[in-house]
Design a protein around this nucleic acid. Structure first.
Lengths: 133, 133
DNA sequence: AGAAATTTGTCCGTATGTATC
DNA sequence: AGATACATACGGACAAATTTC
């Protein structure tokens, strides 16, 4: 039977299932994912489809694959990580003015990103660009 | 002939060739890449291999693909972009102190990234974290 | 509005190359 | 050297979105 994929594609459903196992701790960080051949049997999917699912997990940084070895579950991956962004105009301080080669006090665009990790503020990131039209 | 891939894989060689055409302007930003069927003929490669090449370009943000439409060349993509990183300790200004819930003047780790785009400074990014340990 | 053609998306099966154990 | 596991590549089939007529 060739291929009906109503709703969600097969490879994505498989990726989701594997992701659940990772997040639940069923496959802990550092552990190897079952081999492609094993997953092929378990999910009754072709190798290409299994590889697509693993590629999706890899892209999302859940796992890392090593040639001839296997696919490992990556450590951590913060769950409770929110980010706020704010943008405003500020005057260039002397250092920024020098970097951008403008006069001190020139208007810059500042974006501030506040990364919260489990409630507390983890990192504050401020970026500056020249304001041009 | 099934598949020898000595040295560079086929899909990567194709991706490189397409990238050259994009960087040279032969396929300008906003333009459509030749359809997969056309590339299949030109490179005498299977569709899967062509799609792998395009996927590589997509991952590198050179192109964007739309279902039923085609694959477009993305605008810009700065070539000459260098970055410097510097780290130092600074005193928390009132706003940062409030965010981190510490007293003003508390020591923070500041990392400054200076992104140059073609000589001039394009963006300055400053990140702040608490200094612990 | 509707049908056909075009183009990308998904999936299958198979074969062979390459790295690691 | 052999077994295992991932990487590359081919070819075919059908699905879904878009464009064209």
């Amino acid at each position: 039977m060739p291929t009906p994929h109503y709703g969600q594609p097969r490879y994505r459903a498989i990726a989701d299932e594997l992701r659940k196992r990772i997040e639940s701790g069923a496959i802990p960080p550092g552990a190897l994912l079952p081999a492609e051949s094993v997953l092929t049997s378990e999910f009754r999917a072709s190798r290409g489809t299994i590889r697509q699912a693993i590629a999706a997990l890899r892209e999302a940084r859940f796992v890392t694959t090593e040639h001839g070895r296997g696919t490992y579950v990556n450590p951590v991956r913060r769950e409770d990580c929110e980010m706020e962004i704010r943008q405003r105009q500020v005057s260039a301080d002397p250092e920024l003015a020098a970097l951008f080669a403008v006069e001190a006090g020139t208007v810059l665009i500042e974006q501030e990103r506040i990364v919260r990790e489990g409630g507390a503020v983890g990192v504050v990131i401020r970026s500056y660009r020249l304001f041009r039209e």
